[in-house]
Design a binder for these strands. Structure first.
Length: 663
DNA sequence: AAGGAGGGTTTTTTT
DNA sequence: AACCCTCCTT
């Protein structure tokens, strides 16, 4: 009956602290998700209207899960529900309502990483800078840093540190002009524009301040300055803010997250109550000991030592393999064996790695052994080329002035509108300050194009207009319309043309089916489906999992994911693979500052503490990179976590490879 | 305009 | 090895 009885005293106190600023420093496996879910329930029991509670999570998946748990805790028929979502989703909600004040249309589009890259390319071309001098990716991260620092394109010039920045500042202006012209925003804009809104439009801020009485933030260690500013503004009237996090698990520094936000929280909010959760209910003592010992090598942290509540023998093993191929073979062979002989479910096992290139070999092996598996958080569904092409069609149907999407699909599949024609169209549009879509009929009428080209353009125009009408007239039948579209443009033929391997062709074609399914599910889930709604959801959900069918596989299969995506999760058995210098810590952070290596160490810490009962750390003695074989040396973290001095010189730093096969 | 060959580049992590 | 861009042929 009394749910709080299940909690330990510290947890209970956290759950019962219902007003004022509250900082919960929650170590790995200390039940923090449970605590803030219970706290949400407790707020409602103490008569906070549910819809006046905002709970911010790090991923959409975490949001869904928390909503589900809260629903179970509170009973099914809660008339009003708390808002549980990510920062970005919160900003979208606010902006849909208020963005016209900033001169954007309310139905602005959210562009994805791929769109950002092509915009960055265009911007560089505009200022005649070769991509060799400034890579689009580097430009984007510079722009991101400016935006997260609250710096407008026009002011970027004043925040220049070197020649690259100088070019980047010019490109930033172009980039933003293009974005605005196509009524689109990027991910950073969602935060940036919301902050602009709050700063420049007090009435708008007041509307949203009065909307929430209680705010909770999970994974607070990964909050960046802009997110902090937003939340501070939002809770200013009441200061009912509860943040939960662990400084040892801060792994998003490269995205502007600053550990200092969690360390300095009590200074920012005087009167903060601090509660520490150091009891670990997840890992065995051996696993936790490893984690504790490792993370003590970091200087910039709250000193704490988690207390294990589970004992074990043989729950940790170290393995060395000749190369990454054998590493994968051995790990998968062992997984196959424990599934068969130990009655272990594939879903209890996770393989964690640092980079997205690592899972490939494991994937092949798992498939060969016929073990069900899922790759989570890697290249997502919505990142695939064929999906992006089709989504671009849909976006063009919503707004043909969306230049980014229009240019992506105007000749995909090839329909006789070549690069030359596109160039003419763009030139004309730029010259007239118009849009390619509007310029097309003019160009046809002017008779400057060859008959074939005019014909092709008219056909394209006709296609778009027909589907526009269809989607608008029949939003409930979106899925069927998408099927018709795929058939009409014969996208399957395009796939067969692009990919020669039958296996590839099959896989890519299956993706099309999944898109149709995603649309179907969206329409089922949503009382009032619309194309705009679907596109928004797909943009925000981005890398998250999607679909019920996938959820099943997610439950039942071996899970493969990066250490970053593993944050917040736990598994009975964890294989932490590729424990090598250059991979973990990653090469890009080694040459860098010491704090970069500290972040890698935290990443390793996160990996270790995902394991409940069994942890296996493996490394390969050599590894193929860019088609070339390279020797690798053991990660310094292996020595550190076993209480040894790091030996950066020798290959035989790791002597602790006991051959005990454990199980 | 389309498609293929050849050459150069690339991999950190993601809302 | 995989991807993208450029150039060349048709």
């Amino acid at each position: 009956m009394d749910r709080l009885a299940e909690l330990n005293p510290a947890q209970r106190e956290a759950v019962r602290t219902l007003s004022g600023p509250l900082l919960i420093l929650a170590g790995a496996g200390s039940g923090k998700t449970r605590v803030i879910t219970y706290r949400m329930a407790e707020l409602i029991r103490h008569r906070t209207p549910a819809d006046r509670i905002l709970s911010v999570t790090f991923t959409n998946k975490a949001a869904r899960e928390m909503q589900e748990r809260a629903r179970l805790l509170l009973g099914k028929s809660l008339p009003k529900r708390p808002l549980v979502c990510t920062f970005h989703a919160l900003c979208v909600r606010i902006l849909r309502q208020e963005i016209t004040a900033l001169g954007y249309p309310a139905d602005f589009a959210i562009c994805d990483r791929g769109d950002q890259e092509s915009l960055a390319r265009t911007a560089l071309r505009d200022i005649r800078v070769s991509e060799k001098n400034l890579r689009p990716g580097d430009l984007l991260s510079r722009i991101s840093r400016w935006k997260m620092g609250g710096i407008h394109p026009e002011d970027a010039r004043d925040h220049v540190e070197n020649d690259f920045d100088f070019l980047a500042a010019a490109a930033y202006r172009k980039y933003q002009t293009h974005l605005r012209a196509s009524a689109s925003v990027d991910f950073d804009d969602l935060l940036f524009l919301t902050q602009q809104l709050f700063e420049g439009h007090p009435a708008a801020l007041a509307r949203h301040q009065s909307r929430f009485e209680q705010v909770q933030i999970d994974e607070y260690q990964d909050t960046n300055a802009m997110q902090f500013t937003l939340i501070e503004a939002l809770v200013r009237p009441h200061k009912n803010l509860c943040v939960v996090g662990d400084d040892d698990q801060s792994i998003y520094g490269w995205r502007g997250a600053e550990v200092k936000h969690i360390l300095a929280f009590p200074q920012m909010f005087p009167g903060t109550k601090i509660i520490r959760l150091v009891d670990n209910y997840r890992c065995t003592d051996q696993i936790l000991e490893l984690a504790n010992t490792l993370v003590r090598h970091n200087r910039d942290r709250h000193d704490k030592r988690l207390v294990a509540h589970k004992t074990s023998t043989n729950s940790v093993r170290f393995q060395e393999h000749a190369d990454e191929q054998i590493e994968a073979e051995q790990v998968v062979r062992e997984i196959a064996w424990i599934i068969k002989t130990k009655n272990v479910e594939p879903g209890d096992v996770a393989i964690l790695f640092r980079t997205n290139e690592q899972p490939r070999v494991f994937e092949t092996e798992l498939r060969r052994n016929k073990i069900p598996y899922v790759i989570l958080g890697s290249m997502s569904f919505f990142d695939r080329k064929e999906i992006k092409d089709l989504l671009s069609y849909l976006r063009v149907f919503v707004r043909p002035e969306d230049e980014i999407s229009l240019l992506r699909i105007i000749n995909v599949p090839a329909r006789g509108i070549g690069a030359g024609t596109v160039e003419k169209l763009v030139a004309r549009a730029v010259q007239q300050g118009s849009r390619v879509w509007r310029v097309i009929p003019e160009m046809i009428a002017a008779g400057e194009l060859s008959p074939n080209t005019s014909q092709a353009l008219s056909a394209f125009r006709d296609l778009v207009e027909r589907y526009q009408a269809k989607c608008a007239a029949n939003p409930r039948r979106l899925a069927t319309i998408v099927e018709e579209l795929i058939a009409e443009i014969d996208y399957e033929a395009e796939i067969d043309r692009q990919y020669k391997e039958p296996a590839q062709q099959e896989m890519r074609a299956a993706m099309l089916g999944e898109l149709v399914q995603a649309v179907t599910q969206y329409a089922e889930r949503n009382g009032d489906p619309s194309l705009v709604g679907f596109l928004e959801e797909s943009a925000l959900t981005g890398r998250d999992e999607e679909g019920d069918k996938d959820d099943q596989l997610t439950e039942r299969g071996v899970k493969l994911m990066t250490l970053h995506s593993a944050k917040g999760l736990e598994f009975n058995r964890v294989y932490l693979v590729g424990m090598e210098e250059g991979l973990l810590p990653h090469k890009r952070s080694i040459g860098d500052t010491e704090s970069a290596v500290e972040e890698e160490r935290r990443l390793c810490y996160v990996g270790i503490t995902r394991a409940r009962d069994f942890l296996t750390l493996t490394r390969a003695e050599c590894r193929v990179k860019w088609g070339k074989r390279r020797m690798s040396i053991p990660s310094r973290f292996l020595a550190e976590m076993q209480g040894q001095q790091p030996t950066l010189t020798g290959i035989e730093a790791e002597s602790e490879t006991d051959g005990d096969d454990g199980e």
